[in-house]
């Protein structure tokens, strides 16, 4: 569209327009950042990344469900028999020693979300049963029968005191 016949000036014009388009495009892209970021979890949601749980009132053999990041976390205080049974087996479909799943043998902490389709399994007999599709887990949260492919996930947690755990940080 240049009326000018001097090739030099045409080249300079093209360069100027291209440079402006690049700078402007970068600005448009940068403007998208706050919009996209605003859909990520806000700081008050992120603050819920840690959950403190007092364990003192859980009796041996009993289980407590607490919410961590909106998900159910099963805290099972295992009896010596349950500990022995879990230690004796290596699991089923996804073998893993119990010692790697529990920081202290007495306490099993797992995310109560079935690794198949995300339902919450029920505590039934030894272990858990997921009623959505029939998966079974043992008292270490390891999958014994499918369709679930993997063991119940162990969340990051640490013992802040003898009877207090913090889920969310190690």
């Amino acid at each position: 569209m240049g009326d000018s016949n001097v090739p030099d000036s045409t080249g300079r014009r093209d360069f100027l327009i291209r440079a402006t388009a690049v700078v402007g495009g970068a600005g448009v892209a940068a403007t998208c950042v706050p919009f996209v970021a605003s859909m990520n979890p806000s700081s008050d949601v992120l603050a819920k990344a840690e959950t403190e749980v007092d364990l003192s009132d859980i009796t041996p053999g009993a289980m407590r469900t607490v919410a961590w990041q909106g998900k159910p976390v099963f805290i099972l205080r295992r009896t010596p028999e349950q500990i022995a049974a879990s230690a004796a087996s290596a699991g089923g479909l996804d073998p893993e020693p119990d010692s790697r799943r529990a920081q202290k043998p007495e306490w099993l902490v797992v995310i109560g979300v079935c690794t198949h389709m995300g339902c919450v399994p029920n505590k039934e007999g030894p272990g858990w049963v997921c009623h959505c599709h029939g998966s079974q887990y043992d008292d270490s949260g390891r999958v014994l029968r499918g369709p679930a492919p993997k063991n119940l996930e162990v969340p990051p947690y640490r013992f802040a005191a003898e009877n207090k755990i913090v889920i969310g940080t190690t």
Binding site: L16, I17, A19, T20, G24, G27
Partner: peptide, 8 residues
């Protein structure tokens, strides 16, 4: 950007 747009 505005200077560039002005030159363009």
């Amino acid at each position: 950007l505005t200077v560039l747009l002005y030159l363009v």
